[in-house]
Nucleic acid binder design. Sequence first.
RNA 1: UGCCCGAUGGUGUAACGGUAGCACAGCAGACUCUGGAUCUGUUUGUCAUGGUUCAAAUCCAUGUCGGGCAGCCA
Length: 607
Amino acid sequence: MTDQNNTVAGAAAPAPSDFIRDIVAADLAAGRHTKVHTRFPPEPNGYLHIGHAKSICLNFGIAHEFGGLCNLRMDDTNPAKEDVEYVESIIQDVKWLIGGWADDKLGLKPKGQMPETQSVNGKTDFHLAAVVPSTLGPRSSTPDLEPFFASDYFDQIFQFALQLVRLGKAYVCDLSPGDTDTYRGSPDRPGQDSPFRDRGVEENLDLFLRMKNGEFPDGARTLRAKIDMASPNIWLRDPVLYRIRHSEHHHTGNKWCVYPMYDFAHCLSDYIEGITHSICTLEFEVHRPLYDWILESLHLPRPLPHQFEFARLSLGYTIMSKRKLLQLVNEHLVTGWDDPRLPTISGLRRRGVTPEALRAFAYHIGITKYNGLTDVAVLEHAIREDLNMRALRRLAVLRPIKVVITNYPEGQTEELDAVNNPENSAAGTRKVPFSRTLFIEQDDFKETPPPKYFRLRPGGEVRLKYAYIIQCDEVVKDAAGHITELRCTADLGSKTGGPTASRKVKGTIHWVSAAHALDAEVRLYDRLFTVPEPDAGGDFKSFLNPHSLEVVTAKCEPSLKDAQPTERYQFERLGYFALDADARPGQPVFNRTITLKDTWAKAAQKT
RNA sequence: UGCCCGAUGGUGUAACGGUAGCACAGCAGACUCUGGAUCUGUUUGUCAUGGUUCAAAUCCAUGUCGGGCAGCCA
């Protein structure tokens, strides 16, 4: 059943529609499944990025819209590349992204729970059902839950391999890695049968067991499916199912020295968990015949999962390859996996992007089989739209220049009312202190302004937001000719509610009272790369933007001393900012999540 | 020169044989104590050629272009 009232980000948006959801709807309508069950199966060999976010939103979105479940599963069949650090980050990122939206669709399992052996239609079968955190009772009686791990199924997968051998559909091959390559042929040339292809079942069984028992060194033998070495599909040319790896696994320790390959483990993991729709990216399309072959060869008693593929996300001016992201991290070209310049979920979170914005983005880009390049502007729009509604407005000056209001009494201070969020009157107002000496933005004054510039200029007027209209009388410079101070007079009647308050002045600028200003470190981020497709060719690192981070000390209105990490701020006329994890009491650090749209900057640039 | 997949404005997507729509971007204007937000208007598109049909973005054929596949990675 579809639920048309479901929305993506909690915002009023229609339920998404795409070819995969159409298939799910049709399968449900035709009674092929009574309940959808998807899964999100990352390999814990890196942090999740926004491309994974697309997949998470798809898989959990389907579970959400069709009343199903989505299992979180670690696809951990390669001990060499995986680590618990990644497992933990993945759990955190998934929970954060689906929080408040699809928490009740997150399929987990009791900690340590393994698949159960059951009998279905007289056949031995393995199954591991999902548990959803929110469906559990009081906390005291709830078991600890954890994600699924493909490595928890190594026993069952091994049994399935044995079964395949008994059926004469798999054999132990002694070919070296190099020879295996040679025998495989090439895309336009058929392969050759391995000389070990016709080993008897008993010999295969014996050898495979001995592989498992550690009798052979790494790479000495493999277990291979017996399909067709002449198949036009490379993946059907007797693919390797198991390889020998004497190495410790982050989840199973030293229990195993043979590990199943992705193709063998994945379809069986899907089956064990009762997955109905196994959704992955396009590069696995050619693997689908193998996925089906394995499952069908085993004559399994329960309904089989089916694989569907969609195009992975490519986003302008960034990279999505986990290998390359790892390289940036390892070579300290960024501060870590959660560097706010990275497209990782943890980086975006640290930057101040909300899960709602990411979900809205995922909704807007859609799901297809076309490999396109998504304009970053789509992401930026989703972030701005979300932050505009929730951010508290504050006054902060990033690059200060001193202004003295010469007709304002020395030592006097007044508290002016400022609106917290014009999009939401419930956010209320706050007081902002005003005094004789202020800071304004350097950009808001031009000694020789360009055409259509309507900020402050010598002899010109501008409104100070929430305060007075001021006129610039004098520009004070140091010996080197740098402007050190602007001396201005205020129209003392122009304060909000005052007699001349309604005077029309073209420009309104932000300001901070010097005596009351709070210093804050502000990190200004720009795109990490200088070209739209850093991945397209050449050394991606040569396209790194040398100006992707600029750190300034800003002058902030005093209320910002109480800034909260969960809160989002708009520094008026500048952009959206969030408190960074590096902030300490009395030493705020803000990340600029994104600038405000700046049509003036664009117009000024054109000339 | 094998197999698989794809192609709709600048970008991303919808239209499921019957008026080519939406979003972003762009442009123009209105409004504004944020050159923000909001509102209005607007430029631009079915890869090509045939065929089927009263009717084709949609079905068929051929071609062109793009992506993927030769890890004991996932």
